[in-house]
Structures are given as structure tokens and as C-alpha cells.
Design a protein around this nucleic acid. Sequence first.
DNA 1: AGTTTATTTGACTTATAAGTCATTTTTTCA
DNA 2: TGAAAAAATGACTTATAAGTCAAATAAACT
Lengths: 314, 314
Amino acid sequence: MRECVKISWSIHEYMAGFERVAMMNKRKVILEMAVDLFAEHGYNQTSMQQIADSIGISKGSLYSFFQSKEDLIISIYEHYQQLVFERAFVVGLDGNMPAEERLAKQFQVQFEGILEYKSYMKMHMRGETAKNSEKLAGMEHRMRGRLFSWLQYNLQRLFGNRIDPYKWDLMWMTQSIYSSYMMLLISTDSELKPADLGKHLVRQIMILAEDFFEGKSMPLLDDEMMKPFSVDMDREGAFISFEKREKAWTDLYDKIHSLKREEAGEYVIIADRISEECRKSKPDDLLIKGMFRLLADEKELSGEVSELKKQLLP
Amino acid sequence: MRECVKISWSIHEYMAGFERVAMMNKRKVILEMAVDLFAEHGYNQTSMQQIADSIGISKGSLYSFFQSKEDLIISIYEHYQQLVFERAFVVGLDGNMPAEERLAKQFQVQFEGILEYKSYMKMHMRGETAKNSEKLAGMEHRMRGRLFSWLQYNLQRLFGNRIDPYKWDLMWMTQSIYSSYMMLLISTDSELKPADLGKHLVRQIMILAEDFFEGKSMPLLDDEMMKPFSVDMDREGAFISFEKREKAWTDLYDKIHSLKREEAGEYVIIADRISEECRKSKPDDLLIKGMFRLLADEKELSGEVSELKKQLLP
DNA sequence: AGTTTATTTGACTTATAAGTCATTTTTTCA
DNA sequence: TGAAAAAATGACTTATAAGTCAAATAAACT
């Protein structure tokens, strides 16, 4: 009897889970359709009716998933900011790679992400969203803050403390070149390779930085001016998870390199494979698990491996 | 009797003129108020009623000046693009100035223009204008094309033919840094000096260009990719007037320098004064006339002077 | 199969803002 | 001063799109 009840429960749970998946898929379908339409025609020029029609459902149905149009656009931002930025910023990269090459690779990954979520980026670039949604404004602000934090972190890693006086100038330049390349990627169907863009961008930062270091250029920007851009990067929010994940990756690569065994090379390849898979829009969890299993064979890595696993497969 | 009629006529003309001025002022008042509101709240979030209320007139009255909201925004663009860009691009500058300094000065003038018409630039930056006004899209496209033409002209003047293979890369970089500085100027109340920004910008272009010339960087962009940006710069339209005016200025300065007289220095000062005055939002025509009169005393300059006068005081 | 429950629908309400026009107010001018 | 012309007004019409809900349809369950 108990057994029976148990089975009944698990079927129930199974079905509920199945249903939730179906629901989630529909929600996702709406989000994706809406993003396409918003990117194409703009937020204010796209009606809820159009969105519903394009999907082939009724307006009432649409409103059963999203309370309002504003709720819809906020959901879109939540959905995609997660996908694009978390995945782009928090990449597992071998720390032993030269800093320059490493940064270039990071930019490359970001450009790849941008290409993958072209519609969302297009919509985002258009800017013109809901009237003055407090919530959206906050998200946008935090996002920009996170970009700057990330830039600062990486520039410091690349140049050390000597950039301090030129920090804002370099960050601003980097950000502006970065944005303009992004625009090129998004608005044209050019053959531009993310890898080339990444290298180019880093090269240009290096040149500009060099000019500052040699004292040939004077900085223009300072803390005071840039206050609106420096967010008190929510240590509670997404940024903390970025740092933890970043640390887990670094620790793993460091440990592998410290092994000084012949297998080390192979472990790096496996770690790289995990990193690569995680960046995909639909990572294969099983593959990742398998890779982790391979790494777990090496007892000395177990601590780092399980920490990273906890970060990546929650 | 004839006298009387004549007087009557001239009073009539005088009053009509006065009225037209009043009308024009009102039109201008509307344009300026609308630009402020559009910049602050966005095009779609600003109703015609709000605009009318802010000025203290009725909606009906508003519609007697502008047929529709779209007509209003188009009029705004026509009004300000004229002011900002024509005045910023076509500056009389002493050609004997070192090319580098000269370009910096040109950027400076542009940044000054941007500051002067901050609201318009803000509105323009927001982008989100009328649905899909053919006319506006065309204007925007032509504007961007003109900016690129101007950049190309000036980069070629600065570096000569050797930039040809890197032309698009340099132009794109310049444009992106330029835009980002513009954004800084507009969105913050920073103490940034247009002169500093101009110098900085040129310095950065020079460094980047140098890197290309030394073969250390490879160009990423080419004609094919940049097709959407290269407008068949309407030779009939505003661009032709730019070139003619530019030529008139150059000719005058060249002639002055060719004089090799002791007065030459003074003439340069006078020409500079005219250039400066022309850049103001409300140039003093009388002052300009006076300056021209001073120059006209020098018989050898008369040709160049009258040509420039024709360009500036139509 | 028949009943209950959940989902979907699209006609309807409501809100907003563009655009109109008969009427009022102001200005012009003899 | 007062008639004619010009300008300004705001109540009204119209259009659009967000958001609601009773009824219809489909799915789940016994």
C-alpha cells in the first residue's frame, strides 16, 4: 500500500515536472519571439497582440505567462543577461596563459556570446524600453557596473598597479571600442571573427596604456567624474557568484599546473573541454559530469574539482 | 502721395517682418521646448499636450505650427542638424596650423557645439524616434555618411595616402572614441574641457595609426564591410556646401600667408575672429560685416574675401 | 463515458494620446 | 469704436494598444 502511494507520488511528481518543463518551454518560446520582435521593431512599436499572433497563441494566453508588457520585458532581461553575461564573463581559462592572450580570449568569448544572442543584444542596444521602469533601470545600472568591475579586474591583472592613475581612461577607452565592435557585429552580417576582434581590442588597449605609462598622454578622467559608473557592485548579488566561480576555475588550473606530472597536459585539455561546453547555449550536463569524473581520478585534484563542480552543476 | 504709399508700404513690410520674426520665435520656442522634453523623457513618452502645456499654449495652436508630431520631430532634426553639424564641421581654421593641431581644434569645436546643443544631442543619442519615418531614417543615414566623409577627408589630410589600407579601421576607431567622449560630455556634468578632449582624441588616433604603419596591427575592416556606412555623399546636398565653404576659408588663409607683409599677422587675427563669431549660436552679422570690411581694405585679398563673404552671409 | 479541473480564447473594457474644428478671443485697421 | 480678419482654444472624435474575463475548449481523473 505504502509502495503504491509512493509510486503514485513519484508519477505525480514526474508528471508535474514534465508539465513544468512544457510550461517553461512555452515561456521560453514567448521570450524568444518577443525578443526577436522587439529587436526588429522596437519595444513601443510591438504590441502584445503581434507577439501572440507571431507565436500562434491568444493574447489572453500570453497574459497568463506574463502579468504585463513590462513584466515581459523585465523577464527578457533577466533571462538573457544571465545567459549572455554570466556565461561570457565567467569563463574557465587557463591562468598560465599569457595575460594578454587570456584577455583576448575573454573578449573573444564575449563576442561569440553576442553573436549567439544577436536579437537580444540588438534589442538591448536600441535602448528604448518601458517608460521608466525602476526595476529595469536598476538592472541596467548594475550590469554596466559589473562590466566596469570586470574590466578593472582584468586590466589590473594585465598591467598591475601602475595603471591606477589611468584606470578610468583605459576602462573608458576599452569599453567604447568594445561597444563599437559589438555594434559592428550586431548590425552587419560581416565576416568578422570574434577571435580577431578580441586580439585587436587587446592590442589597442596595450598601445594606449603604453602611451600613458611613457608619460606621453595625460589622463582625463578620475574617480569623481566616473562615480555614476562605479556601482557598489552588489556583493550579495550576481557579482559574488562571478568571483566564486572565477576563483574555482583559477584554483583548478593552478592545481593542475602545480602537479608537474605528465598527466597535467591531459588534465588541462579536459578542463578546457568543460569550459568550452559550459559556454554553449545548451551545455551537455552529462558530458560535463563525465569530464569531472575523469578529473576526479586524480586524487590531488579532488578538492578543486568538487568545488568547481558545485559552482557549475548546482 | 507716392511718398505716402511708400511709407505705408514700408511700415507694412516692417510689421510683416516683425510678425514673421515673432512667428519664427514661437516656432523656435516650440522646437526648443520639445527638444528638452524629448531629451528628458523620450519621444514616445512625451505627448503633444505636454509640450503645449510646458510652453503655455494650446494643443490646437501647436498644430498650427506643425502638421503632426512627426512633422515636429523632423523639423527639430532639420533645425539642429544644421546648427550643430554645419557649424561644427565647416570651421575656418588657419591652414598653416600643424595638421595635428588643426584636427584637434576641429574636434574641440565639435565638442563645444555638442555642449551648446546638449538637449538635442541627448535626444539624438536616445535614438528612439518616430516609428519608421522614411524621412528621418534618410536624414540620419546622410548625417552618418557626412561624418564619415569628414573623417576620411581629415585623416587623409593628416596622414596622406598611406592610411588607405587602414582607412576604415582608423575611421571606425575614431568615430567610436569620438562618440564615447560625446556621451561623457552629454550625460555627466563633468568638468571635461573640449580642448583637452580634442587633443586626446587626436593623440589616440595618431598612436593607433602609427601601429598600423609599423605593420604591428592588421586592418580588420574593408570597403565591402563598411558599405552600409559609405553614403554616396549627396554631392548636390549639404556636402557640397561644406566643401565650398571649406575651400573659401582655406583660400583666404593661404592668400593671407602668401602676402608676406607685416600686416599678415593682423589679417590672420581678423579671420580667426570671423571664424570664432560664426561658430556662436547667434553670430553677430554686423561684427562679421565689419571684420570683412577691414579685410577688404587689403586689395590683394578682395577675391578671397568676397567669396568667403558670399558663403557666410547669403 | 462522464465529470471535474485546467487552459485557452477573443470580444470587451479602459486608457492614452494624436489629431480636428466650431467657437471664442485677440488683433488689425478704417 | 466697431467690423473684419487672424489666431488661439479646448471639447470632441478617432485610433491604438494594454489589460480583463465569461465562455469555450481541452486535459485529467474516476
